[in-house]
Amino acid sequence: MSAGWIILIVVVVLLIAIALWLVAVYNSLVQLRNRVANGWAQIDVTLKQRADLIPNLVATVKGYAAHESSVFEQVTRARAVAMEAANNPHTTVAQRAAAEDALTNALFNLRAVAEAYPDLKANQNFLQLQGQLSQLEERIAYARQFYNDVVLKYNNAIAVFPSNIVASMFGFHEDGYYQVDQADRVVPTVQF
């Protein structure tokens, strides 16, 4: 075998190795991007379940505390804003997080109103709805954590060398984290 053939074989093997590496990196980036989308979908589904539960919870509390109309209006408005954000395809993760955090704060106020009514706290329907809401809140917290973990992996894969070369070649862009607004980090005040 001549030196020319050896060089040609080495070049072909190197080109095949580079092509296989490009395919592997591209596929891993696509898988991470899909996991980010799946993580957001899980948050979305759980938030929808919570939004569907809220009218029943409000109706139950209303039966006992009809004069607390400002709290009911706050919950209703916050739910409407959250549903609008959920249904708008142009809503960013940060905007959606802000709307959902406002709804969480309104639900906190609703729970505080319920604490003032012992008969309501003993109502089986209220207890069941409250339990479902607590389970959904736990699932939302887990889904947010999962989403942020996947976004971290995806953003790291896009930023580190040498996969950042492949990411820039094929148009992969960083995703945003599900974060709480600074204003929502303050403990809400409950007013009766």
Rank of each mutant, 00 (worst) to 15 (best):
L136A: 14
N164A: 08
E100L: 02
A106W: 03
A102C: 02
F108P: 04
Y147P: 05
D119T: 02
V150F: 09
N123L: 08
L136F: 09
D119F: 09
Q132T: 08
S168K: 10
V150M: 11
L107T: 14
V151I: 05
D101F: 07
D149T: 15
N109F: 00
Y142M: 15
Q130G: 02
N105H: 09
L127E: 09
N155Y: 03
F126Q: 04
Q135K: 14
N156I: 06
S163I: 06
D149K: 00
E138R: 08
D149Y: 06
I158Y: 07
N109V: 01
A167S: 07
Q95N: 09
F146K: 10
Q130I: 02
A157H: 10
S134K: 06
V113Y: 00
A122V: 07
A167C: 04
P162E: 00
R139Q: 15
A122G: 12
F161T: 01
D101S: 12
S163V: 01
A102S: 05
A114H: 03
A98P: 03
N109P: 03
R144H: 06
L110D: 03
Q132Y: 11
A114V: 10
N155R: 01
A116V: 04
R111Y: 02
A167G: 02
A106N: 07
A141D: 13
Q124C: 09
E115H: 05
E137D: 14
Y147C: 07
L120A: 05
V150Y: 11
V93E: 10
A141N: 12
A114D: 06
R111W: 01
E137M: 08
L129S: 06
V160T: 03
D149A: 10
M169F: 14
R96S: 15
A102P: 02
K121E: 08
D101H: 10
F146M: 12
L152E: 15
N105C: 02
T104K: 07
Q132E: 13
A116P: 03
L120I: 06
L152V: 15
R139W: 07
Q124G: 07
K121A: 10
A97F: 02
A141C: 12
E115F: 01
L110S: 08
N155S: 08
E100G: 07
A114Y: 03
G131C: 01
F108V: 14
A143K: 01
L152T: 15
V151F: 12
R96H: 15
R139G: 13
R139H: 14
I165C: 05
V113A: 06
V93A: 14
T104N: 13
A167L: 12
A97T: 00
A116E: 10
N109C: 02
N125D: 12
